[in-house]
Structures are given as structure tokens and as C-alpha cells.
Design a protein around this nucleic acid. Structure first.
Lengths: 245, 245
DNA sequence: AAGTGGTCTAGACCACCTT
DNA sequence: AGGTGGTCTAGACCACTTT
């Protein structure tokens, strides 16, 4: 591989450099979501490295959820509506531990000036515009999650033109298809809170009822925050499920 | 590697077989926690495989948290009091996102017959004995977590002899050192609940106050459940933090 | 049959730790 | 200096998918 500056200061393995440039090319849209990358051999030849080295780079990208590999077929950039990524970031399960497909009722969708909270978590300039989306997610007929979502308008140009009737259920798929924004990582902070008047109305529960509060920040391929989501969940019939190693 | 039966039915790669037998040897205590395995070359020679194949097996065990590797030193079985594993399964952070060392106040420590819940989650026989431990965890002087822990007596022979004054703060380290039980995986279900009378007294909060309820099942090296832990957390000053990819 | 990713080898050399 | 894990290569062959 051609490297203009030799790596004296801090050693960087070859596969790491290959991985970084591959990620940049994916982020730049050279291989749009749903399409396949060139084969290992083709890429190895292009970079002038061995198949094993290129393979190691691709395997790391796989582990980070940035590509998906299929034996006999090839290496693809994943989409949310396929590749088993539907529930990748959806941790709410029912009592049997199963996922349910959520339906959304949208209560609010408009552009506004970013609040201090949004500025802080989305790393925006003060005064930046955000798209505010409020919706209730319904699982098997029951209103379970009341959530408020902030999207930086700079990341989603033209999102103002979408409204209550044109916004889809599955946002991350929508981000990818319409705005070339791919969410690959999620940071969440969980708390227990009491239902306020809005929660009470939208989730049909008494004021003061305990809710699971989730503050989510979604990061794109290049680790930039692209969504702040504040969810308040009724956990009477559902739980937030996690596995750690 | 010697394999008596060829792998006709479902293909099993060599490194997978090596990995499985290595894991069995670790679980059997051949290399106790804190000690080092033989070098890659020594193990490769022993199994009659190449260094690369043995390496792949060890790398998978590393990814699963079953061994720790140090360049220039060797491959070790991790302990909880070292190897950066102190906070591996401790997701509660303060407002600055930092971990705090928890101190415990023990309220109850005794053997009893397993409840239906304990039987179900710990996969016990009905009537099996468990060790019940109730404690409050104090972070920077504030009582934050009220928890009840059930341990199968079969997994921890002789644990009856420990009491309120001899049980340590960090249980997983204690499990490993005294009972050769290594926790490598955690399953958790989170809910929001209201504080009951006991929570109120122990955490110095009003009855009805919203608490984060965590049901944790801890699994050992061979994926057997070894602990059921029911925690109720005051999230006024702390949050449960998670990162997903 | 051809093309893809997945496994395995043997050997070389590099980076890091200990002595 | 010697030992350990970490990288890299070149080439072989296997398993899976598609044509």
C-alpha cells in the first residue's frame, strides 16, 4: 500500500490504514447501502496488500456493523430493512422476550431552534435549526412509548417537507434511503421517572406512574451525532433487554 | 489436530474445535484466574495446528471476555480485581459519566429454599437451596441501589459460613477467588417501578418514588446461571449507561 | 463451472515486555 | 537477548452461492 509518510511516531498496522480508507469510501457513498463491495481479491490488488490483510480490515468493519458479509456472495453495505438490522437498536421486548413491530402515532413534526439540551448532545452551534418529532409507539395495540426526537436540519436537508402523514415508522431506514445517513452506533442513558400530564394522556396512564426514561444519541458512520431521542416507556408489559460480556 | 470423527454432518472449523477444548480446560481450572496460558506456539504444537489457527481460537476467546492478551507477556485468564474488569458489568454512572466505587451495607445474608422466581431464572430443581443476600450500595455517601441477590448453594459450597461482616464489596471477584466461579456474561431486564416501603427506608426516598428495576442473571464460563440479582436504583443522581453497535 | 467469502498453513518480520 | 503476542505474505484448499 502506498503511504506517503512512514509511520514513525505511533505505529499503525497496514490493515488499520486500509480499514480507515475503506470506511471513508463507504461514508462517501462509493458503495451505497444495499450494494456490494468489490471482492477481497480485487480490493487487495487495488491496495497492493495480501488477501489476509484486506480480510482483517473487512472483518473489523463487520464487527462494527459497518458492512455485512455473505459467504459465496460478497460483502455489502447493510440496510436497515434487510440484513437482520430491523431490531438492531430496538431493545424493548415483551414478556416472552420477543420483539414486536412498532406502529407510530405522530403528534408533532416541525422545525424549531435547538434547545440547550439539543445543542449539547448533538454538538450544534447555538441557534442551529432542528427538526422536532413527537410520536407514540404502539406495540400490539397498546401505547407503550412516548418519545420526542430532535434531528439536526444540517444532517437532513429538506426534512421540513415531511409531515405527520409522510414520515415512516422505521426512521433509521428512512434516514439512510432519503438522506444517506447511516446509524451505526447508539449511546443510551436510562433513568426511572414519573409520568407527567403529556405522558398520562398519550400512554393512558395516571400522572406519577413510573416510566423508563431513555436518552438516546445516534451516531453515523463517522461517529457524528445525528439524532437525540428522548423516550418514556411504560414497562408494565415490556422490558428493556440487554446482554453484556 | 487429532479428530476421531470427520466432520461430515455440520462443518466445524478447526479453530472452533480448538477454541471449545481450550474453553473446557479453562473452565476445568487448568489455568486458574490470574495465571498465564502457554504461548501460542506451545499450544499450536500441542494441538498440531498452525500458529494462525490457534491464534484465531484465542482471539475469539478474547472477544468473549474469557481470556486477556498482553503483547510481549502472554495470554491470561482474567481476574475481576485487575485487567480493567472492575467495572465491566457495572453500568451505573454519575452525571459526569464516571464510575464510582460502590460501598455495601448488608441487611440480610442467609440460606433459604429457592422461590419460584429463583428456580425459574437460575434453572434449579424445586426445593433447591439458595443463599439470599440483601444489601444497599452506597455511591459517594448516598444510598443509591437496594438489591436482593440469590445464589445457588450448589454453585457456592460453604457460602453459608459467610455473613454480614465477612462478605466483600465486589462479589464477582469473591466468586472467582473463593469458589472458582467466573462470571463472563450478564443478561439484564430493565423496568421502571415505584418504591415500596423497604426501598423507601433503605434509600431514604418517599414511597412511590420512581426506581429503575434491574433483573440480572449472571452466567459463568460455561453459560450456566450462577446469580439472580434484583436491583432497584434511585436514578436521581445516576444513570444506567449503554453503548450499542 | 466460476466466483465469493472462510479456513489453514509455513514462514518471515515487527512491537512490546522481561531479564 | 530472548520470549511473547501482533502483523503480513503467498499460496492452497474448502464451503457456499449463482450462473
Amino acid at each position: 500500500m502506498d503511504v506517503s509518510v512512514p509511520h514513525k511516531p505511533s505505529f499503525q498496522p497496514l490493515y488499520q490504514q486500509v480499514k480507515d480508507t475503506l470506511l471513508k469510501r463507504i461514508a462517501a457513498g462509493e458503495w451505497p447501502p444495499g450494494t456490494f463491495l468489490p471482492s477481497e481479491y480485487a480490493l487487495a490488488r487495488e491496495y497492493g496488500v495480501s488477501q489476509g490483510t484486506l480480510r482483517k480490515a473487512l472483518n473489523e468493519l463487520t464487527a462494527e456493523g459497518r458492512v455485512v458479509r455473505y459467504q459465496g456472495k460478497g460483502t455489502a453495505v447493510p440496510t436497515f430493512d434487510a440484513d437482520q438490522h430491523l431490531y438492531r437498536f430496538f431493545q424493548i421486548v415483551n414478556k416472552q422476550g420477543g420483539h414486536e413491530f412498532p406502529v407510530s402515532q405522530i403528534h408533532c413534526a416541525r422545525v424549531e431552534k435547538a434547545s440547550k439540551e439539543a445543542v449539547a448532545f448533538l454538538k450544534l452551534e447555538t441557534g442551529a435549526k432542528v427538526f422536532r418529532l413527537e410520536r407514540v409507539r404502539v406495540l400490539e395495540g397498546v401505547a407503550v412509548i412516548n418519545e420526542r426526537i430532535y434531528l439536526p436540519c444540517a444532517c437532513f436537508p429538506g426534512i421540513e417537507s415531511y409531515g405527520m402523514n409522510t414520515l415512516p415508522n422505521t426512521l433509521y431506514d428512512f434516514f439512510q434511503k432519503k438522506f444517506q445517513v447511516t446509524v451505526v452506533q447508539i449511546l443510551e442513558d436510562l433513568k426511572a421517572v414519573s409520568a407527567d400530564a403529556t405522558d398520562s394522556k398519550r400512554l393512558d396512564i395516571p400522572v406519577g406512574y413510573p416510566l423508563l426514561s431513555i436518552r438516546r444519541i445516534a451516531l453515523d458512520l463517522e461517529d457524528r451525532p445525528v439524532e437525540l431521542r428522548l423516550s418514556r416507556c411504560n414497562t408494565a408489559g415490556h422490558t428493556y433487554h440487554i446482554q453484556l460480556r
